[in-house]
Design a protein around this nucleic acid. Structure first.
Length: 812
RNA sequence: GCCCGGGUGGCGGAAUUGGUAUACGCGCUCGACUUAAGAUCGAGUUCCGUAAGGAAUGUGAGUUCGAGUCUCACCCCGGGCACCA
């Protein structure tokens, strides 16, 4: 027997799989369809990360198992290749992103193929390919046609280092998610996608999908629905009204002032009539200068200014109350204005204390709790000082009060519309044209015209300089041949949009393209979509839960409304893998110099060892630290599996004695069940452990029955496909099907039962599974006699598990 | 502050409905083989104790014949949201 040569074996099988194309999915194949998806990678210059291997191997195991079960599996791969790193690399080196992307993709492809992942390479896609982004642009135009894409002047998050606008989702702790630079606010014209129109459905439909709980909760938090009332406060001696949003209309009688956000549209108008006009305007200016950070981290000391001489009328008690402008109220949430109830809200309380505003208590805790006048009481309770509502319960009165003052019960969401413009080069050009002439006839005055679908794609032109400008214009703005065009509506001179799409655009629909990747008439045919979608199982990182996952659900729902996709949700099931950390538990990163390259591990130990190790490393959904010396353990396991060949019984002979056979049979059936179920629940670490236990048992035998050996290889094949296929070929056993277990053979004839005396396990006895109670107890009493020192008070017998005696203890 | 996870040997971690805690692997110790090292194979490895035995699943209480698992209170770690009215 030759030594285990992983290089030879892995190359041989990888070549064979490629030549025979056995992992190519076709609609015509037999069996129920099964669409398994992993997040397609960004082909970075650093190459594959061991984290990619974790996610992809896990679903590869699922894919291989399901194929063996006769399912028609689609497991595709592609490249999410637009994005800043390629552009920044071009800035540094002058190498065009097309070139570096091609090189990186080639490297990724080579690396992935060396891992023996059973991807369908015939469906490989690339978001930067014009034949792909043609359809990304086409989809954008559908949003535009339905009024869901619009350009507007808005305050956006601006990263001064990357010189790029960011979506709210890309801002973490007020810093750029990518580079960590504190973001600034800038007013810019931006293309927006109206994701807020779908807020309710994006929230509600989470109940219809099988997502890992954490992902669901994060999306719920992000969408952030909040039920409450919209109530109008008239401005005294004017025709104006200020609409506020509140979740506590029951405290309306305690509203002693109003607060407008500095961004509120009415502020400027009211300021004109104010006694302290200049002060109000200078406060607004000061707020505008403040970054988001200053606004939120000033030790929570609240600032604001009264609009003097102007009062609002509390619709509940008709009292005139002052109006303030303060930046603790956010412009983008609710109506941008609040009614302040200092007695029952901590923020309003702080503000009222600072500005000496009245505090009216209108809710009293129902029972037991005392009111502490140094703190506001924010709980529910009984109304006081509330006119006709006095003595009612706060919970029951919310909608009644809202109705009584002509308010509206409504739901507000934290979700904001999606900033879809990037003033950059390496992205899909937004297929819009601006015509000055048409703008005159356009009610919005903007003059935007969509590029006719027949002229798609709008191809990204070659540029000399990639450098974005401080004014925030795209490098495309420097290319006259690109900008100057004719208006599709009037035929006159017009200018192209120079903004490009964010890198989330191409990834918002790629799983649809996989269904029909070479279609040049449609983004995917209805027939193919009807067959393959929805994705049955999608695995990816937690970091994409509120970005990619939410965005693609939004696109999908829109396409569903347009009748372009057959299901309301794109992904039936979503799981997530934990990060792989460096040895020592730190994050792996190039700058820390602690990365592990899959190439090195494949070279030294082999792909099968790497796959097995990453599955064995720990619970799939939790972060784990890398440990190279533990990879050797997986390698040892495979070597022992290799060596086991020597013990296989030749065809026809049965050398293993009968008693070993029956206990081996029990273990085999248990292992089939365990491995199969563990794969379905991604409990890969315990599945591998079960395979190890089986191998340990095999090694104790003189010889291994062929049938048992075959089952071992069948179970091993998804995890370590190369070695399993090699051994199967050499020993002429068929491992193309997944083995079945016999439920009756899971339990052996004999079973070990623990005997407890007064709660302590004293002895373990072996019993026949069918042993009657009296016999079992008799045997237990004999075995545990030493500890049965007093009269028995109680006996519990759970067959197959435990016998528990409670005896009277001798008091010394 | 609110909402999710999680806390078990030297380390990564197992543990069906409450029913033999520490599976499996790494590391370590001893032994065999070897001139030697490595690899491999065998034995051992939660802690205290020579042993009999005792103690232990973040802390403290509770329910139970029996608790890692259930209940209550608290501590610590990781993640998400956060002046969201």
């Amino acid at each position: 027997m030759a030594a285990y040569d992983h290089k030879k074996i892995e190359q041989k099988w990888q070549r064979k799989w490629e030549e025979t194309g056995i992992y190519t999915a076709t609609k015509k194949a037999q069996g129920e369809k099964n669409y398994l998806l992993i997040e397609f990678p960004y082909p970075s210059g650093e190459g594959l990360h061991v984290g990619h291997v974790r996610s992809w191997t896990a679903l590869d195991i699922v894919a291989r198992k399901r194929r063996a079960e006769g399912k028609n599996v689609l497991y595709p791969i592609g490249w999410d290749a637009f994005g800043l790193p390629a552009e920044n690399y071009a800035l540094k080196t002058g190498i065009h992103p097309t070139v570096s992307t091609r090189q990186n993709v080639d490297n990724f492809r080579r690396q992935i193929k060396s891992l023996g992942l059973s991807f369908d390479w015939s469906r490989e896609i690339n978001t930067t390919d014009p034949s792909y982004y043609k359809w990304t642009q086409w989809l954008f135009l559908q949003f535009y046609k339905k009024g869901l894409a619009y350009k507007t002047k808005t305050l956006i998050n601006w990263c001064p280092k990357d010189k790029i606008g960011l979506a709210n989702e890309e801002v973490v702790d007020n810093c750029c998610e990518r580079c960590g630079t504190p973001v600034e606010k800038r007013e810019k014209e931006q293309w927006m996608l109206a994701i807020t129109k779908y807020a309710k459905r994006l929230y509600d439909d989470l109940d219809t999908v099988d997502y890992i709980e954490r992902a669901k909760v994060q999306q719920q938090n992000w969408i952030g629905p909040s039920e409450g009332a919209e109530i109008s406060f008239l401005v005294a001696r004017t025709t104006l009204a200020i609409k506020v949003f509140t979740t506590r209309p029951d405290t309306l009688f305690g509203a002693t002032y109003l607060v407008l956000a500095p961004e509120h549209l009415l502020v400027k108008e009211l300021a004109q009539q104010a006694e302290n006009k200049d002060e109000v305007l200078s406060y607004m200016k000061a707020v505008q200068k403040k970054s988001e950070i200053d606004r939120t981290t000033e030790g929570k000391e609240k600032t604001g200014i009264e609009i003097k001489g102007i009062k609002a009328i509390n619709p509940a008690n008709k009292e005139e109350i002052p109006i303030y402008v303060a930046d603790y109220v956010l412009g983008g949430y609710g109506t941008g204005a609040i009614m302040a109830v200092p007695a029952h809200d901590e923020r309003d309380f702080d503000f009222a204390k600072k500005f000496g505003l009245p505090i009216y208590i209108v809710i009293e805790p129902t029972a037991g709790q005392s009111i502490d006048d140094t703190k506001p009481y924010a709980g529910e309770g009984t109304l006081v000082n509330s006119g006709e509502f006095t003595r009612m319960e706060s919970r029951e009165v919310k909608k009644k009060i809202t109705e009584a003052v002509g308010g509206k019960w409504t739901t507000t969401y934290k979700l904001r519309d999606w900033v879809f413009s990037r003033q950059r080069y390496w992205g899909e050009p937004i297929p819009m044209v601006k015509c000055a002439k048409c703008a005159l006839r356009d009610p919005s005055g903007q003059g935007w015209q969509p590029v006719p679908e027949s002229e798609l794609p709008v191809v990204l032109p070659q540029v000399e300089k990639y450098q974005p400008t401080d004014t925030g214009e795209s490098p495309l703005a420097n290319i006259p041949e690109f900008i100057n065009t004719t208006c599709p509506r009037c035929g006159g001179p017009a200018m192209r949009e120079t903004d490009v799409m964010p890198n989330w655009a191409g990834s918002s629909w790629y799983y649809l393209r996989y269904c029909d990747p070479h279609n040049d008439k449609e983004f995917a045919s209805k027939k193919q979509l009807a067959f393959w979608t929805p994705v049955d199982w999608y695995n990816g990182g937690m970091e994409h839960t509120v970005l990619h996952l939410l965005y693609s659900r939004f696109w999908h729902k829109f396409l569903y409304d347009e009748g372009l996709v057959p299901t309301p949700e794109p992904y039936a099931k979503r799981t997530s893998h934990g990060l792989i950390l460096a040895e020592g538990g730190e994050k792996m990163s190039k700058s820390r110099g602690n990365t592990v390259s899959p190439d090195d591990i494949v070279e030294r130990y082999g792909a099968d060892s790497l796959r097995l190790y990453e599955m064995f490393i720990g619970p799939f959904d939790q972060p784990v630290a890398w440990n190279t010396s533990a990879v050797a353990g997986s390698r040892r396991f495979l070597e022992r599996a290799w060596k086991l060949q020597e013990k296989i019984e030749t065809k026809g002979s049965t050398l293993t004695p009968g008693s070993s056979r029956s206990s081996l049979e029990t273990l085999l059936h248990q292992t089939i069940k365990k491995v199969g179920e563990d794969i379905e629940h991604l409990k890969m670490n315990t599945a591998v452990s079960a395979l190890m236990i089986l191998l340990n048992e095999f090694e104790k035998l003189e010889t291994v029955p062929r049938a048992s050996y075959r089952i071992f290889l069948q179970l091993l094949a998804p995890f370590a496909p190369h070695i399993a296929h090699e051994l199967a070929e050499v020993h002429e056993v068929d491992i193309s099907l997944w083995p079945m277990y016999d439920a009756k053979k899971i339990n052996g004839l004999m079973t070990k039962v623990a005997v407890q005396v007064n709660g302590k396990v004293r002895v373990i006895i072996e019993l026949s599974r069918e042993a009657p109670e009296d016999m079992a107890l008799k045997k237990a009493r004999t075995a545990a006699g030493k500890w049965l020192t007093g009269p028995e008070k109680r006996v519990v017998y759970v067959p197959g598990k435990i016998i528990s005696f409670v005896v009277e203890e001798k008091v010394p």
